[in-house]
Simulated assay, not measured.
Amino acid sequence: MPHTAVPSEIDVRTLVPMQRHQKIFQLVDELAPGGKFVLINDHDPKPLYYQLEAEHPQQFSWAYLERGPEVWRVEICRLSKAA
């Protein structure tokens, strides 16, 4: 199994808001098909979902693991390429 540099979890609460989307999109771009990570945030990252879907339509799954009120955890997975 090839080694990937993408962490299994990314906690963006330590980043200033301006840097959060940039960091998340960097990780998304590095995901191999079938790869995934869990995003940890201090608010519902719904705007990120819309941005992701706009830039990479139907290439990712988005599943809430925890929905606040203090912590949101979302599993973001790159879908395997369609055959």
Rank of each mutant, 00 (worst) to 15 (best):
M1H: 12
M1Q: 13
P2G: 09
P2A: 12
P2D: 13
P2V: 06
H3C: 10
H3F: 14
H3P: 05
T4R: 06
T4K: 09
T4A: 13
A5M: 15
V6R: 10
P7L: 09
P7I: 11
P7Q: 08
P7A: 10
S8A: 08
S8Y: 12
S8P: 11
E9Q: 04
I10K: 01
D11K: 01
D11M: 08
D11Y: 06
V12Q: 00
V12D: 00
R13V: 03
R13D: 03
R13C: 08
V16Y: 04
V16C: 02
M18V: 11
M18K: 09
Q19S: 13
R20L: 00
H21I: 11
H21S: 14
H21C: 07
Q22D: 13
K23D: 01
K23T: 14
I24M: 13
I24A: 12
F25P: 00
Q26N: 14
L27A: 00
L27G: 00
L27W: 02
V28F: 02
V28D: 00
D29V: 09
E30R: 08
E30F: 09
L31I: 10
L31P: 09
A32D: 15
A32H: 10
A32P: 02
P33E: 05
P33R: 12
P33N: 00
P33L: 05
P33G: 00
G34W: 07
G35A: 10
G35L: 14
K36Q: 10
F37K: 01
V38I: 12
L39W: 03
L39H: 06
L39G: 00
I40W: 01
N41M: 02
H43V: 10
H43G: 06
H43R: 12
D44Q: 07
P45G: 06
P45H: 07
P45F: 03
K46P: 03
K46D: 12
L48A: 04
Y49E: 12
Y49N: 05
Y49D: 02
Y50C: 06
Y50T: 14
Q51S: 14
Q51M: 11
L52R: 04
L52K: 02
E53F: 03
E53H: 06
A54S: 15
H56S: 06
P57N: 08
Q58G: 13
Q58F: 05
Q59M: 11
Q59W: 06
F60N: 06
S61Q: 07
S61V: 03
S61I: 03
W62F: 13
W62V: 09
W62L: 03
Y64I: 08
Y64G: 05
Y64H: 07
L65W: 14
L65H: 14
L65G: 15
L65V: 05
E66N: 15
R67E: 15
R67C: 15
G68L: 10
G68R: 09
G68V: 08
E70Y: 14
V71A: 03
W72P: 01
W72V: 04
W72N: 02
R73E: 08
V74D: 07
V74G: 12
V74Y: 11
V74N: 13
V74W: 12
E75F: 11
E75S: 11
E75I: 05
E75R: 14
I76S: 05
C77H: 15
R78A: 06
R78Q: 09
R78E: 03
R78Y: 11
L79H: 02
L79Q: 15
S80P: 14
S80T: 06
A83M: 11
A83I: 13
A83Q: 04
A83R: 08
A83K: 11
